[in-house]
Design a protein around this nucleic acid. Sequence first.
DNA 1: TAACAAAACTAACGATTGTTAGTTTAACTT
DNA 2: AAGTTAAACTAACAATCGTTAGTTTTGTTA
Lengths: 190, 190
Amino acid sequence: MKFTTRKKEIIFTAAKLFRKKGYSAVSMRDLAQALDMKAASLYNHINSKQEILSIIILEVAENFTQHIDSVLPQEASSIEKLESVIENHIKITVEKTDALACLNNDWMHLEQLALENYLQMRNTYEAKMRSIIEQGIKEKELKTANIELVLFSLLSTLRTLYLWYAKNRTVSIKLLTNEMKQNLLLGIIL
Amino acid sequence: MKFTTRKKEIIFTAAKLFRKKGYSAVSMRDLAQALDMKAASLYNHINSKQEILSIIILEVAENFTQHIDSVLPQEASSIEKLESVIENHIKITVEKTDALACLNNDWMHLEQLALENYLQMRNTYEAKMRSIIEQGIKEKELKTANIELVLFSLLSTLRTLYLWYAKNRTVSIKLLTNEMKQNLLLGIIL
DNA sequence: TAACAAAACTAACGATTGTTAGTTTAACTT
DNA sequence: AAGTTAAACTAACAATCGTTAGTTTTGTTA
């Protein structure tokens, strides 16, 4: 990996460590050692451990926000919109595996504004997903069902797909995308 | 809640705290305070923080193991077996929400034998789930698809259902079970 | 009521935590 | 070559970590 700045390298490495052991279990000395430097030197580039976490998480959260904001106003069927959401989740899973894991597992260790920011983005994201599902039911494209459970069924798999992808990195994104659309939207029963 | 022993009360409370903040972020002093006692007093009942974690996680893991061991040899269709697995996941989600969350999020903080034990149970569980799916495909009950992805799609939702249930405790288990079978097995498209 | 056991307490330990201050090295720019 | 800045270093801080030792309180049994 090539980095434009040392700060990005630190954040990249931190994401890898946070993913493996969790934010709280990674010390600044652990992080420094992984970068072959001393803990105090990290502070030439970052302000705090907390700043590292918030940069990692908020960047991914903004990726999700931007995508759904672009999908929602489109003139498309609800199913096409859901497919686009699935594609984006897979894209982020593949491109930002570690950061996505941090978002999933360590968001509760965010503090103050960063936490508020994250929660607001997550709530908005879920509300927009919900509206897509509601549109689909209204237009008779989706089954009438408990919207909250449909929403959760989709998001739970998409959010944790990085766990599967970490052990199956050789699979083609094309195949992965098609299979996930199948499983999530059409079910697995013949 | 009524407890038979102080030890169970400690473990129950620990599971609640571990779930909220993660194993590493909960100190023995945090745990003691939640029980209205001093940290040192905990050691009259437990041997170590690590012991608490392993008791919490291994008990739930054994619940999963026992159930799938009873399902696998049954004379039933693959779909009936999958439905039984779904029912069990929901049962554990409802009855042992906090412990299940610990298993999901903090298993990597298990040490030595407890970690080996857990991983062995998880691998065996997944292998048995896989064999049910393979049976279903062979008997033309399930679609021909990437088995690993079908397995993951099911397990990812079932494993994290506690996140949804925590915010929707009033839903009836009957409804929850039926909707989950629908979503996971038949999909959401009309 | 005296004796005993269970379970709480205080005090402290060595290790580790995130972080700061002050200093030295390394890499460019003039 | 001299000057400047970025980025590493050593040393240390106050706080907190899991845990132990020794003591006191509490509640039950003889």
